[in-house]
Computed example of a mutant assay.
Amino acid sequence: MHIKTTKCNRFCLVASVTNHEVFNRPEAQASFEGLFRSFDPEVQFQYFKSFRRVRISFSDALAAAEARLRLHKTDFNGKEMRLYFAQSVHIGSPRLEPPKPDKQFLISPPASPPVGWEQSQDATPVINYDLLCAISKLGPGEKYELHTATPTTPSVVVHVCDDEHGDSSAPDDSDQDDKPRQPRPKIIQTRRPDFAPEVEQ
């Protein structure tokens, strides 16, 4: 959005009038307008009763400045009248412009990637072939030390599980019929502890 700028309008004054007769009685309006017509005969008035303001447009900037200099904080029908130069508001464009797409890539999902954005490549996984070779040579019950212990760090050791049948070779189907199968271990559930509620008196 464009930044709006405010500057002073040298041809226009705004009068703050607390006297309601200026807005209701034609005689009071004629007396009020006569004060400013002495400085500029072509002066124009716009009355805003709800805001108790009168917009006074001059055809000459010098006449507006002189009227403001002589009539500011003067008495009008027993009430003080104050005069201010009107301000004109300027917005950069007559229509509302969309915001610059500097951070639109933060929207999920993004409308479009930012300029110069590229897809990052996934890192190649690190494969330790020495470790794989050492583990493949291990037999049941053997171990392989990956990291030697130091005074401040423990050692890292890989243990290979023992074979269920006592050897590393897989049993034949014919042997399975002759040998009795080992019973599966029974899972014993943990007994719930006894609970004796205590009633506080």
Score class of each variant (00 low, 15 high):
93 S>W: 02
20 H>C: 03
1 M>I: 09
198 E>K: 12
155 S>P: 03
63 A>C: 15
94 P>I: 04
28 A>W: 01
159 H>D: 05
63 A>V: 03
3 I>C: 10
98 P>D: 09
20 H>N: 11
59 S>L: 10
194 D>Q: 13
33 E>N: 06
6 T>W: 07
109 P>A: 04
71 L>V: 00
129 Y>F: 15
31 S>C: 09
174 S>N: 15
15 A>D: 03
136 S>Y: 01
187 I>C: 05
122 D>Q: 07
80 E>Q: 15
155 S>M: 08
3 I>D: 07
12 C>S: 05
178 D>L: 03
61 A>V: 03
56 I>K: 00
145 E>I: 11
9 N>F: 01
144 Y>C: 05
49 K>E: 04
196 A>N: 13
150 T>I: 01
63 A>I: 05
188 I>Q: 15
145 E>M: 15
64 A>R: 00
115 V>M: 05
106 L>F: 08
64 A>D: 00
41 P>F: 02
146 L>G: 03
122 D>A: 06
147 H>G: 01
42 E>L: 11
160 V>E: 06
5 T>N: 06
152 T>S: 13
136 S>V: 03
92 G>T: 10
34 G>M: 10
79 K>T: 03
126 V>Q: 07
9 N>G: 00
61 A>D: 06
20 H>V: 11
48 F>G: 04
42 E>F: 05
87 Q>M: 14
167 D>C: 08
133 C>H: 13
14 V>R: 05
201 Q>N: 09
10 R>H: 12
68 R>Y: 06
169 S>C: 11
169 S>H: 14
120 S>E: 09
42 E>C: 10
103 K>A: 08
89 V>L: 12
33 E>K: 03
109 P>E: 00
109 P>W: 00
88 S>H: 05
109 P>F: 00
155 S>H: 04
13 L>C: 02
167 D>E: 07
32 F>D: 02
191 R>L: 14
174 S>C: 09
55 R>K: 15
170 A>Q: 12
181 R>A: 10
201 Q>Y: 04
1 M>V: 13
36 F>I: 06
30 A>I: 12
197 P>N: 04
66 E>S: 06
1 M>T: 13
141 G>T: 01
81 M>C: 08
9 N>I: 03
5 T>R: 05
39 F>I: 02
175 D>V: 08
170 A>C: 13
162 D>F: 14
29 Q>M: 11
21 E>W: 03
127 I>C: 09
163 D>C: 15
